[in-house]
Design a binder for these strands. Sequence first.
DNA 1: ATGATTTATTTTATTTTATAGAACAAATAT
DNA 2: ATATTTGTTCTATAAAATAAAATAAATCAT
Lengths: 110, 110
Amino acid sequence: MGKENLGEFEELVLLMVAVLKDCAYGLAICDEFKAQTGRVATIGAVHATLNRLETKGFVASTLGQATKERGGRRKRLFEITASGKKALLQSRDVKVNLWTQIPDLSIQKI
Amino acid sequence: MGKENLGEFEELVLLMVAVLKDCAYGLAICDEFKAQTGRVATIGAVHATLNRLETKGFVASTLGQATKERGGRRKRLFEITASGKKALLQSRDVKVNLWTQIPDLSIQKI
DNA sequence: ATGATTTATTTTATTTTATAGAACAAATAT
DNA sequence: ATATTTGTTCTATAAAATAAAATAAATCAT
């Protein structure tokens, strides 16, 4: 039994998969990651993480069809599983709960 | 320049430090971690992480006084720094923002 | 049709985080 | 003294994250 909690990068990648819905594949996730977090994720890191998430059962993948655009080879499309959703919700709930215990920290200081 | 983002375990340990306020030291953090997350963190892992957080500037530590209870040797007390608070808020904001983009996932299914 | 370009995944190597457990230290209790 | 309790530090290993290069399959231009 592999552990069922998500690493920091794993959690973000999984959120990107959920946000991108039916357009979630390696490069798109990589771009979305940068757009959403401001951080740069290398494509190798994203794919390694997607593979890990798949063996953990948090995502499932299928091969899409090639598109007629230049270089548009077949994409490996990912979607979040029920188990993946559960892991995301659990991870969020623990933190939301902790945040309610430190209300002073929540106040944005300018 | 070390990177400024928090790992998963680092983030949770930092939240425990914030929750425990002036009572944040190794063993207490370890216990709080279990109470809050349900997961078991070994004391070695907690201290290793606290040291890492300190070199990153997210926590600061001071030696407390020994208490008169049995075995009550001096504790190393940790407190979150301004930079640590900023890192926590940033980490939270990115995720909160992502969650608003997947409202369907937020609906708790029974 | 063949070589260049583009989109895309896979592979390999290294560093950083995380986990586990033992060792060590300093206090009180008996 | 020595046993027990609370506490930190050290060491070794496994897992996750990062970086960069290699490979693959499609289109475009000639």
